[in-house]
Structure formats: structure tokens, C-alpha cells
Amino acid sequence: MPQTYAFADPLILYGVPHSLYTGVVRCYLRTQGIAYIERPTSHPDFAQRIMPTIGRSIIPVVMLPDGRIIQDSVDIIDHFEQCRVPWPAYPDGPLHRILAIIVQYYGSQAMLRHAMHYRWSYLGQQEAFLRDAFAAGSGHDMAEKIMTRMQSYLPQLGITETSIPVIEHSFESLLDILEHHFREHPYLFGGRPSVADYGLIGPMFAHLGRDPVPSDLMKRRAPRVFRWVERMTAPRLDAPEFTQYGTDYYANDSLPETLTPLFAHIAEEIFPELTSKLMFMDDHVNQLKPADGQPVSDKPHQRYIGVINTRFRDVPVSAGVQPYLLYMLRRADAVMAGLNESEHSRVLAELQRHGLDQALPGHRGYSVARQNHIEVWEIAN
């Protein structure tokens, strides 16, 4: 068994149990055996030490024992991936790695629609649970304001009376697909979690696996999916049902047939919305002509730069555009750029077979980076 990377002292994780992105980081830290102390945003150190550094109220945030601060679930995972962690989350195989990044994008970005619908559209059936969670994390005085603000995000996520039946059908279909996979495999890409698992666990734990309405649906319809949620939130690798399975990713960049329906599901969900968002950013950058390193928005807390009219499956929806999506998907471009001609052709053919080749943004003359805890434009020379 690999040796656990150990700190002399535990780090501090600022977050709350019902936070989607805090759930991602908490799962990663527990899997890797990294000691941490979790504090809510109501803790005085958050206002006195964290917010002056990151310039906004946002979670998760990690403070390392040496005082360094890291904000953003992807940045936190990528920081520790450079350390000697026992269970690296990026597969070595290029196809595995690219697909894992795309699944991570789907879970942490596209599934916001599912997560926020089930939390707020069913408020009347789970209000006591949610009010207790928000009050415990932020204090009674702030809970109502935060809950009201969160509900205001539904329109820009494309959650309407017209789209809700499609969102619910989508979630049920996803549960069925994952249920079949997790009957045979402990994690998405084999014997340990990848960034794909960490991408999905955010919505599947914090919202859909805890809030009473979707959690009950998951337990009744897809018990193996709920068991995967338990496995992801437990310390280390918690897979006694798969004692003889091993801890490696699938050999030789191969994929089991149980993942084919998942990739098809993701392709149907993210397109044409992702294509429309990339085109919006193309036009935005062309008109704005930002300098290299310029923040993507005028204020640090503003992550949306506009709204597009697109479709979610067969339903027209409006959707906010966050340049952060480009920051996530560029990591897949980087993998492709490092391949020789033969490997490039092989991986591209597999992505095309799954309908996911257009998830890689490709050359556009610009990208998005993160500096000082915010997204900035990165302009090619």
C-alpha cells in the first residue's frame, strides 16, 4: 500500500456540509488520509484571515499548516496531486485522463442544474433540513439571505417549469446508468477514485445524496450509487464488496462497456450548451480584447459574464456563461497536446466514438487561468 503523505499539523478546511464544492475537497482529503480541521464560514478566522486574502466570500478554502491559502476545489486537488499522496487522482492513460476531466466538468458544472433543482424546487418538502444546515454553517442571521440568494440562481441555470421534467428524467437516467456500473466496479475508472469521481461526488453527495427528496430517490432507485457516495465520503478506500478488485485504474487505457452509456449521457447533456458557451466567449473576447492577466469580470465575486439561449436535451433554456469552464477543460487539451501522432489519433477516435471530442476547446487564441484566487484571461502571443 502506498505511503500516506503526512503533514506535521492538520490543515484547515473552510466549508460547510451542504456545500457542493466543499464536499469534493472533503472526499479527496479523506481518501488521501490528509488530516484536516473543518471550520464553517461563520468562524471568525474566515472573515479576519481568509476573506481579506481571497477578496470574496467563497468556499471551499484550504489553509495549509505553513499559512498558504488555496481556494477552488480543482486547485486544491491539483496542489496535493503534486505531493506524495497515496491514491493519485489523474489516470496515467491519456484517454482515461481526458475522459475523467470531461466527467469532472460534467459533475461540477453541468450537474449544478440537477443539484440546485432538487434542493430548491422541493424546498417545501425539506425546508427544516435545509434551514438547519444553512443556519449551522453561516449563523441564523445569514441563513435566510444565503438561501434566498441561492434560489435566485435557478433561472440562469435553466431551471424552469418547462425544463424541470427533463432535469428529473435526466437524473433518474443517470442513476440507472451508474447503478449498473457500480454493481461491477467500485469507482468510475477502476479500483480508486479519479478526478471523475471527485467531479460527480460534489452534486451527488452535498445536494442529491443529503437533501431528503433526492437522497430518498437515490436510495430507493439506485442503492449501489448511494453505496458509492458512502464509499467516496469514507476514509481511504472503502470497498469491502470488491476485496479482490485491486486499486489500479483499468489496464492499458481500456474502458469497460458499463461506461459507454455514461459517456453518451454526458454528451447528450452538455451539447449544444457547451458549444454555445464557447462561441459566446469567442465573441466576448473578440469584442473586449482583454489584456493578458485581466480578470474575467469587473468584480471578483462575479463569475458569469453573460447569458445564452440554448437547449438542454430538447428543451429551450437560458444559461449563464462562466469562463471557469475553460479553465477546467484546458487540462484535457494539455493532455492531447502532449501526445505523439499515433496516440493522438487513437484518443481522438475514441472521443469521437463517444461523442465527446468537441468537449475539448482546442485553439481559440485565448484561455482562462487563475491568479490570486480569481479567473483571468490568458491571451496567446
Rank of each mutant, 00 (worst) to 15 (best):
K289P: 07
V61Y: 05
I379F: 08
H43P: 11
R210V: 04
Y249E: 02
G139R: 13
L178A: 06
Q125V: 11
F205C: 07
W228P: 00
P235E: 10
L20A: 02
F182S: 02
E230F: 15
A369C: 04
W120P: 05
P10L: 02
D92K: 14
F129I: 08
I305A: 09
Q109W: 14
A349N: 12
N340S: 03
M150G: 13
I58R: 14
G93P: 00
P240H: 15
A291N: 11
L13E: 09
A35G: 07
L99K: 02
T148D: 14
D9E: 15
F129T: 05
R149T: 06
G23Y: 12
D75K: 05
R131L: 02
Q287W: 15
G202P: 10
E269K: 06
R346H: 12
G33R: 11
R97H: 00
R311N: 08
V61M: 00
W377T: 03
P60W: 06
L188W: 04
T258L: 08
H265W: 12
S121N: 08
G93H: 01
I164C: 07
R192T: 05
G362A: 01
G306Q: 13
P223N: 05
D283I: 10
I54D: 04
L157N: 03
T4N: 11
S138E: 15
N340I: 07
P235N: 13
F80K: 04
T258Y: 14
P223A: 00
Y250Q: 06
S73N: 03
R227Y: 13
P88E: 02
D75R: 09
A234C: 02
G355D: 10
E341V: 09
M336T: 00
L188Q: 06
V335L: 00
G246N: 08
L339Q: 02
K289I: 09
L325T: 10
I146L: 01
Q126D: 05
D248V: 07
P203T: 06
G67R: 15
A334N: 06
I167W: 04
H79V: 01
Y106K: 02
R113N: 09
R113V: 07
A369L: 11
K277T: 08
S194L: 02
S297E: 07
D9Q: 13
G191M: 01
E38C: 05
T41W: 06
R113M: 11
R303D: 05
S194F: 09
Y122D: 06
R119T: 01
S170E: 13
D72E: 08
P295F: 12
G202L: 08
G23F: 07
F129C: 03
D9N: 15
R210Y: 09
P91N: 05
G15H: 08
I34H: 04
Q322L: 13
I308L: 03
A291Q: 13
A267C: 07
E269G: 09
E38N: 10
P94V: 03
A110Y: 14
L175E: 12
D216N: 14
E268S: 08
Q371C: 00
T31N: 05
P323W: 08
E257D: 15
A206R: 05
W120L: 04
F280P: 06
G306W: 11
R227L: 10
A100M: 04
Q71W: 12
V296C: 03
R370S: 04
E172D: 10
D238N: 12
I101R: 07
V376L: 04
D216K: 15
S254Y: 11
A359Q: 01
L20I: 15
E144W: 11
D132N: 15
H344V: 04
P295L: 04
